[in-house]
Write a protein that binds this DNA or RNA. Structure first.
Lengths: 129, 129
DNA sequence: TCAACACTTTAGAATCATTCTAAACTGATA
DNA sequence: TATCAGTTTAGAATGATTCTAAAGTGTTGA
């Protein structure tokens, strides 16, 4: 709890009740993929009612501070990943699930980067049926 | 023109005025990436006013028949790619542009596919700044 | 050629994730 | 503990996309 407060402070985020609850859930040591909706539902189960606006705000605050990765895999919901190490994903659109690939993947044969651009990151998504 | 009609018929799509215009634009031999909005604008420039609903319908009809690839790269607009060969992309979220990578890319080091699942496709997105 | 019908198009309403607004609230600081 | 910047929130707004249901149009068989 005080850990969480410190954790938030060290990221220049004021440790409010809501952020503590959300961070406590997200960063409990088990990597997770959440959407605003799924997070809201999960917290509600634990009797923590936090407005959706705050959930969106908080996810973005965390994302902007590098505490979450953002994944746009389908047009109708954005996923946030608590695993911020560089990694890739298995994804099933049909079943809407996401699995981290934590092995080292190599991508070979890339053409040269367009003029005046820099590669930010390479994202590999393995789509499953 | 008759080519386009045949082309549509061969894909079990009735060659309506609107589909002929849209297919004529999309499949002119030059690969393109469009969104519903960009397509609508492009056709309007050419004095072809087609309702957005029809543009969405048609893009999906084409997509379902394998004439277009669908790319969900940002949450707020879906791209359709006239290049349906298996290929990858450079993508700049900031500048909202998309470049096909037509070279052969190899992805090495994938872990084994989750039980009872099959790989549908592997998508590599090279994010640029 | 044409009637008949299934397939299409369309305007406008509806949907739904996400963002915005402006007011109430609260952690931090002196 | 008063003050104020940073937060939370309900509810409205946004914007891409989908839906609805009515009008329009290819296609086909005679």
């Amino acid at each position: 709890m005080n850990d969480i407060k410190q954790f938030l402070r060290s990221n220049a985020l004021r440790p409010t009740k809501q952020r503590i609850v959300i961070a406590g859930y997200l960063f409990d040591g088990i990597d997770k993929h959440v959407t605003a909706e799924s997070l809201s539902t999960e917290l509600a189960k634990r009797k923590h009612i936090i407005s959706l606006a705050t959930i969106y705000n908080t996810l973005h605050d965390f994302y902007e501070n590098g505490l979450l990765k953002k994944l746009t895999l389908s047009a109708d919901r954005v996923y946030f990943d608590t695993n911020t190490d560089h990694h890739h994903h298995f994804y099933s659109e049909k079943e809407q699930f996401l699995i981290d690939i934590n092995k080292n993947i190599k991508v070979n044969g890339l053409p040269k980067t367009p003029k005046n651009k820099k590669i930010n990151k390479i994202e590999v998504i393995v789509h499953l049926d």
